[in-house]
Amino acid sequence: MAVEIPKVSYTGKIKTIPIGDPSKGILVGGDEAYPFYGFEGALPNAPRIAMDVQDTPPEECAATIRELFSDVWDDPVAWAQKCIQEYGADMIDLELASTDPNGLDRSAEEAAEMVKKVADSIDVPLIVYGTANVEKDSDVLRMVCEVCEGRHLMVGPVQEGNYKKIGAAAIAYKHTVIANTPIDINLAKQLNILLGNLGVPDEQILIDPTTGGLGYGLEYTYSVMERIRMAAMVQQDEKLQLPMICNIGKEVWKTKEAKQTIEEAPELGDPTQRGVLMEAITAQDLLLAGANILILRHPETVKLVRSMIQELMG
């Protein structure tokens, strides 16, 4: 009995976007089929993995993260180097946690200087995330864009409340914006339209649909991403034909179950492997739903997810 796979007739494809210094030729997107469905369309660019670095030592974190990074975590430059040299990160994400007005409230100038220092010390693409505080991010990320002119950063989260200011700076200083909306396909589309009207070229926009970690809203992110990808590829929704980015490490490693020790939760097994699998399964789910760039924290997760990507793209 000859069995043939019914194929999806795709009517749209994901735009190909250069990441980092365009002369290096690092591309994401270009998908002509759903994730890992290479049997029915071209997937020219494998998903990329960034590792996250925080601009200030984390207050409370899992023991395994402490063991791996506490030697470098008061120095973002050294932290980034460790991720690249030891763990082979494709790119770095610098989290500007210290700018949080409810925390250290560091100034935009200080933050931008730190970003510049990290950008100057690495040769791979750099993502910069603020704290999702609309007003503060607006100041911080504008300043980051200006100070790092020509570095082709990816900056976010750019939200409806600050897209004009950050978007304008991204256009002027040639950076990519990470358009972030709260797990909603219509809002995602609307923000892309607004950014387009402002004059941000499609090649400088990534969609961040807001990430829920495993057990903490993953299913909402998963389904909204599947819907975004379907709208882009079979419903001709041009404004959603852009690569997606998911900031996973920070969501997963802040959860209770990723931090609990073996004494606190013996039934959850080995804490390191448990945390790594929570992060890796979140990553794999969101890859299946359409993520083109993942931000991860644990080097073992990076290794595991990278080998899954290789096997599935094969």
């Binding site: 039934e267 959850l268 699998l277 929570m278 399964i281």
Partner: peptide
């Protein structure tokens, strides 16, 4: 059957099979 794998797998299953 190890907790470190079963916990994430069972939670993944719960998430994916929850009625949206």
């Amino acid at each position: 059957i190890q907790g470190q794998a079963m916990f994430p797998l069972l939670v993944n299953r719960l998430n994916i099979y929850t009625d949206p």
